[in-house]
């Protein structure tokens, strides 16, 4: 393929991806507010546009026009840099996540992954998600406020402890899959999802992923009841919106990762006999269905996250650490060993 065309394809694809993520972020907020309202016997935002569909737009406009306040005693450069450091890794992770196989467009074969068949895909994911903690820690430190600092400290401790268990749950997956390439992992789940082969791994991954993105019940760094708003207490306007954006994009990212690792990625979520009877529902037959299936799976997992938030109170910080180190870590270690043993015995 011509280099020029492939660069063009790459450019268009990344623009589309970023645009979809940003829209996805906006509508995830709406989804969360509407779904949580249902859980709480309320209606939720339904005034701006039909069914409140323009609410994210209204929020965005409001936040853009808010006054930007930088505390006098803050470290200005870091203070401005921190929200960017939080958002960028969240978006960048998406480069390796396949959201479809590949489609033919104007005679050009377009892979529906930004960086397809990257042979260190999982390592890349782990590396980038670890970077995102810097945004929060630096925000906490740069604000020069006690609440922010406590929030930042909490998040660094929390992320480090939970990343271990998360990494181990992926090790077990890699042992089974025999590859670090995300596209390959998805293709391997054509017949049976890894969720059924790796139930413990999947559950541990999802729990730690919740902790990784600071969602309830692990929303320690921004524990409203204790730390007013944690690391983003001093932020306002668009900078605050960026943190908000980072959180919701990370929600989408971990849903996408869970789907890719354990729920068959963009593969059709349909039983085998159905795709045999109606072959056009299969991704192999109609590659354009890939992103659709992928999106539906992500939304399902997002709703699970909202459900958890609407249901559970927050852990206390010290218990959270205990849970990470004394429960999740041993279980995931044991799970890695069991998986390895089984793989070894089966040859």
């Amino acid at each position: 393929m011509d280099v020029g065309i492939s660069i063009l394809v790459w450019l268009v694809l990344s623009i589309v991806l970023v645009f979809m993520l940003l829209t996805g972020f906006a509508y995830t907020t709406l989804l969360e507010r509407r779904v949580i309202a249902r859980f709480q016997s309320r209606v939720g935002p339904n005034r701006a546009g039909p069914q409140g569909l323009l609410q994210p737009l209204a929020d965005g406009v409001k936040l853009i026009f808010k006054e930007e306040i930088i505390p006098a005693s803050a470290d200005k450069v870091t203070f401005i840099l921190a929200p960017l450091l939080a958002v960028i890794p969240a978006i960048v992770v998406f480069a390796v996540i396949p959201f479809g196989s590949s489609i033919e467009l104007f005679g050009v074969k377009v892979p529906l992954t930004l960086a397809p068949n990257m042979n260190v895909g999982i390592l890349y994911v782990l590396a980038i998600t670890s970077v995102s903690v810097y945004g929060i820690v630096l925000a906490g430190w740069a604000s020069n406020s006690k609440y922010s600092m406590l929030g930042g400290l909490r998040s660094s401790a929390q992320m480090i402890s939970y990343e271990l268990a998360m990494g181990l749950s992926l090790v077990a997956l890699v042992v089974v899959a025999g590859t670090l390439d995300l596209n390959a992992i998805v293709e391997q789940q054509k017949q049976v999802w890894y969720f059924f082969l790796q139930p413990f791994g999947a559950i541990i991954f999802m729990i730690t992923a919740l902790a990784e993105v600071n969602r309830a019940p692990f929303d320690m760094p921004e524990a409203e009841q204790e730390l007013t708003s944690g690391y983003n207490t001093e932020y306002s306007g668009m900078k605050f919106a960026l943190f908000y954006m980072a959180e919701y994009i990370k929600m989408i990212v971990i849903s996408a990762l869970s789907v890719t690792f354990f729920f068959g990625g963009y593969r059709e979520p349909l039983p085998l006999f159905l795709t045999q009877a109606l072959p056009f529902l299969s991704v192999d037959h109609t590659p354009l269905l890939g992103p659709l299936y992928f999106g539906l799976k992500i939304i399902a997992l997002l709703i699970v996250q909202v459900w958890v938030r609407a249901t559970l109170p927050r852990f206390r910080y010290d218990r959270l650490m205990k849970f990470g180190w004394l429960v999740l870590l041993p279980i995931s270690l044991a799970w890695v060993m069991i998986t390895a043993l089984v793989v070894l015995l089966r040859g």
């Binding site: 016997s41 309320r42 929303d219 009841q225 938030r309 109170p313 927050r314």
Partner: peptide, 13 residues
């Protein structure tokens, strides 16, 4: 329950 960090659900019930 809200103080415990349950996001308003018990409070609204």
């Amino acid at each position: 329950l809200n103080d415990l960090g349950a996001f308003f659900t018990p409070a609204l019930y």
